[in-house]
């Protein structure tokens, strides 16, 4: 992992904190958008594999420590979402506007399913009907909306970093940004 990628992770985690502040003050509870998930999806789409994975894990852990009951559940869910985004982007044309939107939809479903199963394994039984109607449905819809601004934000950060800190030829490991991948 390059130094620039490390900086990118730190910036994304900082934005994660900001996003969580907004989310928990104004958008708490079921039926509201999960901005953190949106940010993780965008990082998973724009950034390289280690950046997406580590950012997802860190934001998940932070979320668990702040509002979760079991540390690791959100981390696992965010990892699943980030991995799904990265898995889909290989098969899709990244220049198509619809690509990240569809990927975010699938990723939010994957993330929520992992959360549901993780909680179930810990003995927390959430009614299937409520999970489908009250959590999965809203997260899927909101992810489609949130991915667009999140994508623009993360891509903007990534591009700015590339201009400020061009990657040296010695840094071979990983492709640090959307542009490098394309």
């Amino acid at each position: 992992m390059t130094k620039r990628e490390t900086v990118l992770i730190i910036i994304c985690v900082f934005f994660g904190f900001l996003v969580m502040s907004v989310e928990y003050v104004c958008l708490a509870g079921p039926g509201k958008p999960d901005l953190t998930l949106g940010l993780v999806c965008a990082v998973g789409w724009v950034c390289s594999f280690p950046v997406g994975l580590i950012t997802g894990f860190l934001l998940g852990i932070i979320k668990d420590v702040i509002v979760g009951r079991f540390i690791g559940v959100s981390a696992l869910s965010m990892l699943a979402a980030a991995m799904t985004m990265m898995g889909i982007r290989r098969r899709f044309n990244p220049d198509m506007v619809l690509s990240p939107v569809i990927a975010a939809l699938v990723s939010s479903i994957a993330g929520d399913l992992v959360s549901y199963l993780a909680l179930l394994s810990l003995g927390v039984h959430i009614q299937w009907e409520f999970f489908l109607r009250g959590i999965l449905y809203y997260d899927a819809i909101w992810s489609v909306v949130i991915i667009v601004p999140s994508f623009l934000l993360v891509r903007g950060i990534s591009r700015s970093l590339e201009k400020l800190w061009p990657e040296s030829t010695n840094e071979r490991v990983g492709r640090s940004s959307y542009e490098s991948r394309v």
């Binding site: 994975l53 580590i54 009951r69 540390i71 690791g72 559940v73 696992l76 810990l122």
Partner: peptide
């Protein structure tokens, strides 16, 4: 990539188990 994925997933599951 595989090692990183396994490490992070294992860390999440480990934390989940000790808190659960």
């Amino acid at each position: 990539k595989v090692v990183l994925t396994i490490l992070l997933v294992a860390a999440s599951v480990f934390l989940m188990n000790i808190t659960g």
